[in-house]
Design a protein around this nucleic acid. Structure first.
Lengths: 204, 204
DNA sequence: CCATATATACTAACTATTTCGTTAGTACTT
DNA sequence: AAGTACTAACGAAATAGTTAGTATATATGG
């Protein structure tokens, strides 16, 4: 057995995770079978059972894998809080349908349906939303401090943004054709960001 | 065959829809089988096949049924636009876990996962979101006209509210224990409503 | 008005199909 | 020789869907 950083997955498991992504993208989570995953996996179905006791155990790992990828996507701090906020929005609501961010977004959307029935799942979502919230509180506080943002309450405003982002991501996946732009949804957010951005009185 | 208004369902079908609600509440949509529905249904499984060709046909009707109930929930116009807006928020985000509104909310959340793969489903969500949007545009426009709201853009603000509501409903179901209050999520919305509400300058 | 045909709502029991998960084994490494 | 990564083939279980029927109501018609 090769020694491995606990953050790294066994390469076979990693490939199973990738196959699961592909299966979800094609079939959707709601009628996802081990067979569907095996079909996207270039080794045998038995190997999936060799690594995982069953669907449930696999999905625990998969949820973890997805959440890790989501965290990786989150941008590092930028020049100014306002830029940072806009980068975050653009990252979480990509206009173009690039492979990876789209698959992560879809998987996070689909797996969420387990949360009402599965404590582990609920906790995972609670944790990432908390991280997102913390990130937003930080951005917003700094923005208020340096005068870029109006005198908003960062805690409450962050909570608002988290809900808004989750709702917009859901709508982006379900109500528009994947290829169609989500311009009108993003415009609404942009409109809101401008509202909380301090109007620099130097520029008339 | 008894003549029936096209809006009314065959009583047996109605009972199947109710059983489907119960099955989703217990099992979740993602691994919902006809058997699960039959278990919640007090007549035989065969009767489900007598009325529906299969799971897919049943779910088309069920989505319809859920959407109709959602529309029924939407409140009628109230005294003032601001009150109307707050009533709408309270209706869509009930604090108490009453049976019916909760089941409708859960079903709408769970069935949404089909939208990326099913045009009919996507269209249904697009249509209700459009109705919600129209309702909000109407409330907001009247509020701006009569001076209750700040000079916001009703179209954009409505879009913002739709995303915010969908996101908050999702979080309400997935991140909090059903019994736990959603106070902090609703507070954020309340905070936002107050922000767009005109400060009556007569009150100092 | 009675007998018979037809239709509707429903069921138990069965078959077919899919999906799950195991067994018994290979090939390659250490 | 012992362990790891892997597979084809098979058995078990769950799910889907059908068949062949019953009970009851509603005509039809002599």
């Amino acid at each position: 057995m090769v020694m491995r950083n606990s953050d790294e997955l066994d390469p076979a498991k990693r490939d199973i995770m990738e196959a699961t992504y592909d299966a979800i993208t094609n079939t959707g989570y709601s009628d996802l079978t081990i067979q569907d995953i095996a079909d996207e996996f270039d080794r045998s179905k038995t190997l999936i059972y060799y690594h995982y006791d069953g669907r449930e155990e696999l999905l625990v790992d998969f949820l973890d894998y997805v959440m890790k990828q989501f965290r990786t996507m989150l941008p590092d701090s930028a020049e100014s809080p306002q830029e940072e906020l806009e980068t975050l929005i653009d990252t979480l609501l990509p206009t173009t349908v690039e492979e990876e961010p789209f698959q992560v977004m879809l998987a996070m959307f689909e797996l969420r349906v387990n949360a009402p029935y599965d404590t582990n799942c609920r906790d995972q979502y609670l944790a990432v939303e908390d991280e997102l919230n913390t990130l937003l509180v930080d951005i917003l506080s700094r923005g208020v401090e340096n005068g870029e943002f109006e005198n908003i309450d960062p805690e409450t405003e962050a909570e608002l943004f988290v809900s808004l982002l989750i709702g917009t991501r859901a709508r982006r996946l379900t109500v528009y054709d994947p290829e169609e732009s989500i311009a009108s949804l993003k415009e609404a957010i942009q409109y809101h960001i401008e509202r909380i951005t301090a109007t620099s009185e130097g520029n008339a």
